[in-house]
Design a binder for these strands. Structure first.
Lengths: 241, 241
DNA sequence: ATAGTACACGAACATTTGTGCGATGTCAAG
DNA sequence: CTTGACATCGCACAAATGTTCGTGTACTAT
């Protein structure tokens, strides 16, 4: 299951819910979704919403207005794709007050999507739907890189301790399918069905995911390149004490 | 303006909104609030909600179901006492001035005031944020609700490398005159006329400022307590790669 | 006393908003 | 060609939900 496996409408719906929820602090209605995604019938939105619920990408409270919430950790798992043009996913939507508010400010709003294992990778990231604890906002000069497609994860485990990334830290990643040797990346390992935070190293057709911890308990993970999918590259680390 | 200045109903309403939003991931309706707080009339809830909006403690979207959201930074400012029954954030805090002049947006704006040495002297930390070289914005849950003014500094030097604070990192500090043993603090050393970033340790009348670097080049600084002034305590570390 | 203000109540009202259902189009399997 | 799962559309309906308004009470200032 990958984000791109979803229908275009479902992808748009997810992106819209994320953008809307982030800027409004409450979820959108069926009609608001329909208007934005270009679905005239509320029942079609409802239909797709139910599909997304089957995939556990959202959860719904029936008969409750705006009774839905994103399962952001799961979204991160399947590789939510951000809007290319605007970089910032939050301004992906047009015609909303949100985008207007966003357009004039040179800020990066970054969702904290969930946790990532740095250590013994955990099979499935335990997830609660939309965690309101999570979004951070940085201003222009704070990030040097082309601003775009950013998301954040909370680190679990100590495998990257030598890279000064500790258990509990938040890493900000730039969403990308490829990365260079030496980059710290979030990688999905097919077969193992797990995501982990490691240094990337390529050797021929093999990909080495290198921990940064001298303890022998942490060993490199070596896999064929086609069994590893890069979710993003770490561009920033944040720690709360 | 303090939290306890609000009417009991308004206090209850705020606590309920917080509890409800936390557990449902969307805000409550007027009637849900009324039921919980013990208000039979929806108009009374509406009335009090409008009051709270005047105080900028919440923001509302008119004619929108569940169209309200808490202004957490402002809430922290006025010292919201959380409900023990609901578990979270049970500690009573006496919030003081934070930097939340942008009340509608529910964000913490943190000025980056300058550099701090891990071994080098730097100028005083101004009590009035002026001419920051930049600023960072974090939102609501990113920081455990601050009880004081926040500011940020850019780290120079490697004396705290063992604490995973590297050269070039940005540390966010909470302004306070005192700190506990083990806290990482920015301290002004009288006589030396310099500010430095170190771990704090008290021993009798002496204050030890401990580096976190095994290299013998970095030595603890030991001074009489009255020669050391704490400028703030590190609550967060940010690193850009 | 009189007027004014803040707060509260309840009921009627007007939207907003989720749900249900019949009809249509597509496409691949039988 | 027929069948049937998918996905879509439009529309009617009912429930959920914000708004308005007339009334009442208590307290304050004039």
């Amino acid at each position: 299951m990958h984000f791109s496996d979803l229908s275009m409408r479902q992808q748009k719906i997810l992106r819209f819910i994320l953008a809307f929820t982030t800027s409004h602090h409450y979820p959108p209605t069926i009609r608001e979704i329909g208007d934005e995604v270009g679905i005239s019938s509320t029942s079609v939105v409802n239909y797709n919403l139910s599909k997304l619920e089957d995939f556990e990408l959202i959860s719904r409270d029936r008969e409750v207005s705006r009774g839905l919430s994103l399962n952001l950790p799961r979204l991160a798992e399947i590789g939510l794709a951000f809007d290319e043009a605007n970089g910032n996913y939050a301004s992906a939507m047009d015609g909303l007050a949100a985008s207007a508010e966003n357009a004039r400010s040179h800020r990066f709003r970054i969702p904290v999507l969930g946790k990532i294992a740095a250590g013994q990778p955990i099979p499935v990231i335990p997830s609660e739907p939309y965690d309101p604890e999570g979004w951070i906002e940085l201003t222009e000069g704070m990030l040097s890189l082309p601003t775009g497609r950013l998301f954040a994860l909370r680190v679990q485990g100590n495998s990257m301790i030598d890279a000064s990334v500790l258990n509990g830290d938040i890493v900000i990643l730039q969403q990308q399918e490829t990365a260079n040797n030496g980059d710290m990346v979030a990688a999905w390992i097919e077969g193992d069905e797990e995501t982990t935070l490691k240094y990337l190293r390529r050797e021929g057709d093999m990909v080495h995911l290198m921990p940064a911890n001298p303890n022998p308990e942490y060993q490199p993970i070596v896999r064929p390149a086609d069994k590893v999918r890069i979710n993003g590259k770490v561009v920033s680390v944040i720690r709360m004490l």
